[in-house]
Design a protein around this nucleic acid. Structure first.
Lengths: 341, 341
DNA sequence: GGTGGTCGCTAAACTGATTTAGCAGAGCAT
DNA sequence: ATGCTCTGCTAAATCAGTTTAGCGACCACC
């Protein structure tokens, strides 16, 4: 890999100057008194030789590697990771940086190992990401340098990037009100664990609050709230069947995420009900399935790409404010209609 | 990030030996004549100081970085990437290596940039991955060092890791035959572009061949074959509606991937047909939705994690044979039953 | 005519590891 | 006593950059 590359010494020789001069020119150092001609010659020589600096040599001296560690609990291998990584990758590229990605899989030993591997490589900073939006404990080892939390907060006072679940909750409620739903709104996906323990989830509570506030301001309360042990299709399915056994039937269902909504669609389909004519459905996340469902599922998108991007920006450009709440855009799809009858 | 770490010189001083001795001991060099006592003292000193070698310094000298570049067209940000990356991550960790991940997004400029960034960092090897199993052209720049293609082949003679789509096709056909389907088997997802152009897909042709061969050996031919411009749910939906308008109705549907099968489920549900009592469905990929569908969708799993792992193994442990065809395990789920009637 | 300052540039130190070449002392044979 | 080998260890070079300290030439000024 990359033998016989031109070195700075080669460039300097070709330009008829010292390594010092070549280094200064190529780094665009201010305040140096090298002549315009010298600049010319160095640039030309570098160009002709296809010179690229050796990062190892440079970072040995400068302790900078133009490398960011992207450490996650498990995020890198889930469908949710894609956007986070892509956004981070893009922003890193724009800043001439590169991403060293590791996964701890929630295992303390792996985490220890991963972090040492990163620190050994002198990364310029660490993005510590979580799969589920939650509070976590940052391993002290990484606190020696810049850290940004992605999709997470911690008790340490670190800059972090979070989706604005509260506002998403409000907009979900708002769009239902806008369609004329009031007394028939049911919620699927209540979960005491997720709502009560910030180390498990921050999204659940925030979404719920947003929904309740927006409805409350309109003088509306939820018709029903179904609890689910997990937010998977089968739980949405079961919860929906439960709702349909009750009377009156809801006119709209809010699901705490798209997978629950997928389960809801399945139950509604089996019950012979049509979305949105019989029941409107809306949810959170904008999982790819939301667009694949028939009719398309209205939802609020987790802005993963934006979030990944923000994290790199906060890390490299400095975090003036600290936290960043990234808005979750509403995706209007055909699962919404005014209440039947 | 990681200031005031102990250096090798610190360790040597504390052990009362030279840097040379310390280096040799810590690297477990054979044939050195250092005393057992010297070994002891070095290890103790390293331990006490929490010594960790500076990777930049080491790789400046050795030209090894214990870092692998994972370059992909777009794989890193799709739902399919997860497994590939996780497998590679795991195998890399086992070998004390770390992954530098980049995405070219199919853009030549980005690719150029990404590859230079990797080479500047003296990666020990490159894993070049594609999202869709296909033939691609490897940028010449990376041919200077070890390269393994992941989910791809090329005209260069490089080791590559591919899913065994042909055998997957055979096992899909076999399991239908095993359930007693013969004359009622329809196929959804024919696509001349994917089948004909290896730069677009290798999977389509291989799956099709596998299916045809296994059916052919049993003296069975397909009842119908539907063409789809893409392999997305909406195309599976349309194709399935088309099939249902024909007579006789198929007893089983093979879909070229799970997203098509999702569309098929939607169409079957709307038509009031039940899987698997009226029609069996089986497909390829083992996308997460396969398990979420009701009933669970039988499919053959793309062994992404295995593949990512194999790629690292081939890269670091040497590729004795060259290519690796990774088996696609059959996931038996409730979408299969004997033909009705 | 010395002194001071600026200009344009360079030698050498430095980063922290690996690796080559070789030294001092012990033991042994001649 | 001399030469030889073996043992146990080290000094110094090396990798490819960045950075510090400073050199010689030239000019201006008093």
């Amino acid at each position: 890999m990359g033998r016989n590359r031109a070195t700075l010494a080669d460039v300097a020789r070709r330009a008829g100057l010292s390594k010092t001069a070549a280094s200064m020119v190529l780094n665009g150092r201010e305040g140096t008194r090298l002549s315009a001609d010298a600049h010319q010659r160095v640039f030309a020589a570098a160009e002709e030789l296809g010179y690229r600096p050796n990062v190892a040599a440079r970072s040995l001296r400068t302790r900078k590697t133009a490398t960011i560690a992207f450490v996650s609990d498990i995020v890198a291998t889930t469908r949710f990771a894609g956007g986070l990584i892509r956004g981070a990758l893009d922003a890193a590229r724009e800043r001439d940086h590169v991403l060293l990605i590791t996964e701890t899989q929630g295992d303390a030993t792996f985490e220890q190992y991963a972090i040492e591997a990163m620190l050994d490589r002198q990364v310029d900073g660490v993005i510590y990401a979580a799969m589920a939006t939650r509070r976590l404990t940052v391993p002290p080892a990484i606190l020696g340098g810049p850290v940004v939390l992605l999709n997470a907060t911690s008790s340490d006072d670190l800059p972090c990037v979070l989706p604005d679940d509260d506002r998403a909750g409000r907009s979900v409620a708002a769009v239902l009100l806008e369609h004329g739903h009031r007394d028939g709104i049911a919620l699927i996906g209540r979960n005491r664990l997720k709502e009560g323990d910030p180390e498990v989830s921050l999204a659940a509570e925030a979404r719920l609050n947003g929904i309740r506030e927006a409805l409350g301001e309109a003088g509306v309360t939820l018709l029903a709230e179904s609890f689910c042990t997990e937010w998977l299709p089968e739980h949405g399915y079961a919860a929906t069947r439960g709702l349909l056994n009750r009377s009156p039937r809801p006119s709209a269902i809010i699901c705490m995420n798209d997978r629950l909504a997928f389960g809801a669609y399945q139950a509604l389909g089996e019950a012979g009900l049509t979305v949105p004519d019989d029941i409107s459905v809306i949810s959170f996340d904008d999982d790819p399935i939301a667009a694949w469902l028939r009719p398309g599922l209205a939802t609020t998108a987790l802005p993963h790409e934006q979030m990944g991007r923000r994290a790199v920006e906060l890390l490299l450009d400095g975090a003036p404010t600290g936290n960043a709440l990234v808005p979750m855009p509403l995706r209007r799809r055909r699962s919404l209609a005014p209440p039947a009858g």
